[in-house]
Amino acid sequence: MAELWRRVRRERQIWLLCIPMIAWVLTFSYYPMYGLFISFQNYVPGHSMFSHWIGFDNFVRFFNEPDCLQIIRNTLVISGLNLVIGFPAPIVLALLLNELRGRVFKRTIQSLSYIPYFISWVVVANILITLLGSDGVLNDILMKLGLIHEPIEFLMNGNYFWGILVTSNVWKDMGFSAIIYLSAIAGIDKELYEAGKVDGLGRFGLIRHITLPGIRSTAVLLLILAIGGILNAGFEQQLLIGNPLTQDHYEVIDTYVYRFGVQLGNYSYGTAVGLMKSVMGLVLVILANRLSKRYMQSSIF
């Protein structure tokens, strides 16, 4: 009896601690989800939510916007490039690092490689402006080599934008993602390598037949997640590296939502576009997962 009483008291104490936590999560996480309803309305700040229901008008409106195709193109091209270059890059880095014999050298390179991950996009944008500006190092070298005769304003020209953005994405994330692959490689049974050597496999053979299969499930997992995020083409980096001159090339769905929804005050419309993006992202993850289950025999759920 005393035991039970103590337990009830204990539970009450814990529930008491839980109350503010539940209040917080309902307010800051669940209430905004409920706020997604405004995408079916014509919401005016200050007025009550649920005033003017307009059905799917906001969703249809996006596809009638003149910029629509350009925004979808930018989103898909940028994240497509991020995927094609950014997905294999950390695998290659991890494989190269794994081939190194000198421990100190390996550690040094690895430590250097993920410094950029911890640097803010503001700093990255600053670096780009300094290095690629008309008085920056890149123009300086190109001119000295005689490849160009006057400085190129790389950041002012939309044609360079995708390349610059994707390169900086890869520069920033490659080292960090490589950690995950390196830890997967470290988990491979060492005896497999011994057996492989006995069977006469060379260095490339060992990589092909042992290391790569060993990190396959990690790679598939990251690939599925990357495909699910294909509509997340970046946000801060676009706002920070892009400028009005390159807008034709940098505007992606997320920056569009920010510009139209927040800055111009089209709350309902912006929310609708954002919601559409999230739903498509969810569908893509599920599809990618199905495909990988069927063809690669591994999946995340």
């Binding site: 999560v25 307010t27 800051f28 996480s29 669940y30 209430y31 905004p32 989800m33 409920y34 706020g35 997604l36 405004i38 700040p45 997320d254 939502v257 920010y258 929804g261 927040v262 709350y267 912006g270 929310t271 954002g274 919601l275 999230s278």
Partner: peptide, 16 residues
């Protein structure tokens, strides 16, 4: 845990 996968997104949070 659910909040890792579902969120209201930029604008509803901003309004909040």
């Amino acid at each position: 845990f659910m909040t890792m996968y579902f969120s209201g997104g930029l604008i509803p949070t901003y309004i909040l």
